[in-house]
């Protein structure tokens, strides 16, 4: 009897906590389907009295979210692939071969990732102006790759170092070169770590605001996260359109999370269990 009561209490408490977390999300999704008139008469805090999807059309076309989403993907996909590819190369070289100074290099690269971005914001924006990359998606890709590399290299290094030596030795005896060992032997074995980092870095880069507003100025070049702030200015007090824009901006990362849930969680936990 006591046991059942306690279980009931536990679930009641946890359901309440979960609602506290899910409630705001559900609320915004509902808000995004209300008409302007409904909100004007009943207020943003009331329950819905209407249903429409025009808000999404407005955010999508008038609000420029379509273009913004395209920009986001044009930055995020190459940045994730490039930074993981480059980080895998370095991690491979540093973990599988006795390269002189390898610990120092790894340390330096990780240290670069731990720097507060503020210290490099001004030079990075000036440097992208100097190279003509300012206000282009290229600048954003470059800085995302440069700033992310250290952490990805460090994580992949830890993973590759723990792979057994015998496989590499066997491949060497079979006459495989360094490049083949990398692409045919080590990379396939690193897949779990790459998947975890891929899911993580996708959300990090997709969700970024600071780098985007530092190297991009034109509204039409903005990825979806910074563009949301512009949408907010454009549709002042059209709360349902802003809510629709918010939902649109959140869908890609939620999809990645749902699709890669296991990798995602293990990626986040990498630092904690080592």
């Amino acid at each position: 009897m006591m046991g059942r009561l306690r279980t009931g209490g536990y679930h009641t408490a946890m359901i309440l906590v979960s609602l506290l977390w899910l409630g705001p999300i559900i609320w915004v999704v509902v808000l995004s389907t209300r008409t302007f008139d409904d909100i004007a008469t009943n207020g943003v805090g009331s329950l819905p009295h209407s249903f429409t999807l025009d808000t999404y059309v407005q955010a999508w076309t008038d609000g420029g979210q379509l273009q913004a989403l395209i920009n986001s993907l044009l930055v995020t996909v190459p940045a994730v692939l490039l930074s993981l590819g480059l980080a895998a190369m370095t991690a491979f070289a540093l973990s599988r071969f006795r390269i002189p100074g390898r610990r120092t290099i790894l340390l330096l690269m990780l240290a670069g990732n731990l720097l507060p971005p503020q210290i490099v914001l001004i030079p990075v924006s000036k440097f992208s102006e100097l190279t003509g990359l300012y206000d282009t998606l290229w600048a954003l890709i470059a800085v995302q790759v440069g700033f992310g590399l250290g952490f990805y290299t460090f994580v992949l290094h830890g993973f590759m170092r723990d792979l057994p030596n015998e496989i590499q030795e066997a491949a060497t005896i079979d006459g495989a070169g360094v490049g083949q060992i990398f692409t045919r032997v080590i990379l396939p074995l690193t897949r779990p770590a790459l998947a975890a980092l891929g899911a993580l870095s996708f959300t990090w880069i997709f969700n970024d605001l600071l780098w985007a507003i530092t190297v991009i100025r034109t509204e039409g070049n903005m990825p979806v996260t910074p563009a949301l702030l512009g949408l907010q200015g454009q549709f002042v007090s059209s709360w349902s359109v802003i809510a629709a824009g918010t939902v649109i901006a959140a869908v890609p990362t939620v999809a990645v999370f749902l699709g890669f849930q296991r990798h995602f969680i293990s990626g986040l936990a990498i630092g904690a269990v080592k």
């Binding site: 670069g112 720097l115 490099v120 440097f127 800085v143 700033f147 360094v178």
Partner: peptide, 28 residues
């Protein structure tokens, strides 16, 4: 290290130097 291995280390390191290390020094 073979040239390929050197490239594996130096290219990413150079990218991070251009976008992080050098800007950080400039920032100071």
């Amino acid at each position: 290290p073979s040239p390929l291995l050197l490239t594996f280390v130096l290219v990413p390191f150079a990218i991070e130097s251009i976008w992080v290390f050098w800007p950080a020094i400039q920032g100071v």
